[in-house]
């Protein structure tokens, strides 16, 4: 009986000590029902991801000009879209051997809790190479953690485009028997596309006097890539495309790729007259 009493007393004492101890521990912050607890929860930053880049059909550039290509992608941030740093969103188009094209900024198309769709405009140049370009989409969050997706590509179509500064070649005044009489002005061809031309051929035509109908035959006209020439020009063949090997500058594409063409005439013995081309000459560029 005594043992039971001792055990009971011991249990009571232990309980009292525990209650007293707990009340001492919490006595500083919790009084009565006015209890409050300072809790600090540290949530780690989740790196954003770009799960989807919207496919883009083949891009067709515009001759001698620029083309704005709009590309869109979805960025996901588990910390919420507010954690995405919109100012860092961008798209870079890249291709080996070509200058990369970067969007200056991107706009927000739509947002959900954790996913934001961006739209980015990339300006491409007419001379950007045909073929597959890699789309590199990136965005950072507020902690500068970067999301990258470079698994999608876009195809740029071929662009053949040439601008010529003049359509008419004239000789103001020449004398009978004069050889290698150079025309008043050269013609300049400009490659306004992304293709290279391995050959430039020209088809010449006779010129006939308006008053007397005398003919300056095609074979008296010649062409060179240089001015003031007295030899080495390529002579034309009537109504037939004739390759002019010297015209090789367009075998490249770029921001300013041009080809000068100089025209010469060996003046035959004909009457004074105004001579006009029987029909149009033609230039044929072969890629």
């Amino acid at each position: 009986m005594k043992n039971k009493t001792k055990l009971t007393l011991s249990m009571l004492m232990i309980s009292c000590f525990l209650i007293l101890g707990l009340s001492m521990v919490s006595a500083d912050t919790c009084v009565g029902q006015d209890c409050s607890t300072n809790m600090t929860i540290t949530v780690g930053n989740e790196v954003p991801t770009i799960a989807y880049v919207y496919p883009e059909g083949a891009v067709t550039l515009t001759g001698g000009s620029t083309k704005v290509v709009t590309l869109e992608f979805n960025a996901t941030d588990p910390n919420g879209v507010a954690d995405l740093n919109d100012a860092t969103a961008q798209v870079v188009l890249s291709k080996a051997g070509e200058t990369s094209r970067t969007s200056p900024s991107c706009s927000t198309v739509s947002s959900s809790a954790t996913v934001r769709q961006y739209s980015c405009d990339v300006t491409m140049q007419f001379y950007d190479g045909a073929g597959s370009w890699t789309i590199n989409a990136t965005v950072e969050d507020q902690s500068a953690a970067e999301a990258v997706n470079d698994t999608t590509s876009v195809t740029v179509n071929a662009l053949d485009f040439i601008t010529q500064d003049i359509l008419t070649i004239t000789w103001g005044s020449v004398s009978v028997g004069q050889t290698d009489a150079e025309a008043d002005a050269k013609m300049v061809l400009t490659n306004g596309g992304n293709q290279d031309y391995s050959d430039i051929s020209i088809k010449g035509q006779n010129a006939t006097g308006v008053a007397n109908s005398e003919v300056i035959t095609t074979d008296l006209f010649s062409i060179s890539n240089l001015g003031s020439q007295t030899s080495g020009q390529t002579y034309m063949v009537d109504n037939t495309y004739t390759s002019v090997p010297a015209l090789s500058d367009l075998n490249a594409h770029g921001a300013a790729v041009t080809q000068d063409i100089y025209f010469y005439l060996d003046v035959p013995i004909v009457q004074s007259d105004t001579y006009l081309s029987d029909s149009d000459w033609s230039i044929l560029a072969t890629a």
């Binding site: 070649i169 035509q205 230039i283 072969t286």
Partner: peptide, 13 residues
């Protein structure tokens, strides 16, 4: 109209 009058450049591909 001119001694030499050209068409716009043509292309062979």
């Amino acid at each position: 109209s001119g001694v030499v009058t050209f068409s716009p450049v043509g292309f062979d591909k």
